[in-house]
């Protein structure tokens, strides 16, 4: 069993058990073609959404994955939960190889891993009320026999997400709730099975600013008090820095840098991380200025650049970057970076 010293935003967590280990995870989407393309299947081009990603998450850890849209972070989150079938790689969750599981075993282990989505309205069936939405996992997993038996669970979990009194919210429909309340219901649904691991895919980016803090603090509380590990997927480094113990930065399907949050934010090593941090605007009119950002935009993941994927945009790229892809190498103090010149 691997043990890692985590120095996170909230101080040392100490030696903890690994709950999830991802190794060389790869997800390629074949490009849709007509029948002709299917027949000549050996020459299919693919979207390389996730391309060989490895990391591990400890019990109770808040692990952030940060990247711009199209970097593959969302696909990665779903592939880890096997909501998408990985192309290759290894996912070990609580000592179980997820990829080897059959449908029945997978269903059973889903009680221990859940997901929270970006859009709390989209992630709930608009025809169901809060009670039914939250009780769904219980019923599907046959923890309760019928709707009625789910009541104590739902009451408890609604209280856990600060929706009090719970009875008031049970009969509401998603459209009758505000964005923050909807996201709380989404968290309640994820929590009702008492999971050990939750993938939170941009859980606050659709919410009003004034309600974001509440959701983030709620998730922090859950990880602290119940030891729930979070994979926090976001494009927003500022909130990631606020909640995460460790952060991995993704670019075009690859992790380019990984490390404890404060370390990574204060002393970014990879040119992409540097640019990403530079680009974050500061809500302070006295500190004006748009930092040096990378030129251009993310290239297509169908034809990623050779060598280091950042090299066409990288300010410090040299010849070797165009040819040989840098590996994610440990630097010091739990940090890893994939750059020759970092």
């Amino acid at each position: 069993m691997e043990s890692i010293e985590i120095i996170g935003g909230r101080g040392t967590i100490g030696c903890k058990k690994v709950i999830l280990e991802v190794e060389n995870l790869t997800k390629h989407f074949p490009l849709r073609r007509g029948i002709k393309g299917k027949l000549a299947s050996n020459s299919t081009s693919t979207v390389k959404a996730v391309d060989g990603v490895s990391f591990s998450i400890m019990k109770g850890e808040f692990f952030g994955v940060v990247g711009e849209s199209g970097c593959g972070k969302t696909t990665m989150g779903r592939t880890i939960l096997r909501l998408l079938e990985p192309t290759k790689g290894k996912i070990v969750f609580k000592n179980t190889d997820l990829i080897a599981l059959n449908t029945g075993q997978l269903k059973k282990i889903r009680t221990k891993m859940q997901i929270i989505y970006q859009d709390p309205y989209e992630s709930m069936n608009p025809r169901l009320d809060v009670y039914r939405i939250i009780s769904e996992p219980l019923r599907v997993q046959r923890i309760v026999k019928n709707l009625h038996d789910a009541f104590p669970y739902i009451k408890e979990v609604l209280e856990d997400v600060n929706m009090v009194p719970p009875e008031k919210y049970m009969t509401r429909y998603p459209y009758e709730l505000s964005g923050g309340e909807r996201q709380r219901v989404a968290i309640a649904r994820a929590l009702v099975l008492k999971p050990d691991f939750i993938v939170a895919d941009e859980p606050v980016s659709m919410l009003d600013v004034s309600t974001r803090g509440g959701i983030l603090n709620l998730m922090l509380k859950l990880s602290r008090e119940r030891g729930v590990a979070f994979l926090y997927i976001t494009h927003d480094l500022a909130t990631a820095r606020h909640v995460c113990h460790r952060i991995a930065v993704m670019y075009l399907g690859k992790i380019v840098e990984k490390g404890p949050t404060d370390d990574l934010v204060k002393h970014p090593l990879h040119p992409y991380t540097k640019a990403l941090i530079e680009a974050v605007l500061v809500p302070d009119p006295k500190k004006r200025g748009f930092g040096e950002v990378l030129k251009g935009e993310i290239p297509s993941p169908i034809y990623p650049p050779s060598g280091c994927r950042l090299h066409p945009r990288c300010p410090i790229a040299r010849d070797i970057c165009k040819e040989v892809e840098p590996k994610l190498m440990p630097v010091d103090n739990n940090r890893m970076v994939a750059c020759y010149f970092a």
Binding site: L81, K107, T111, I115, S123, M124, E136, V140, Q141
Partner: peptide, 17 residues
């Protein structure tokens, strides 16, 4: 493709369900 379908899958819901 709606997310609530995936959410049901993530809870362990079978295809028939």
């Amino acid at each position: 493709e709606r997310i609530f379908i995936e959410a049901a899958k993530a809870s362990g819901g079978s295809d028939i369900y």
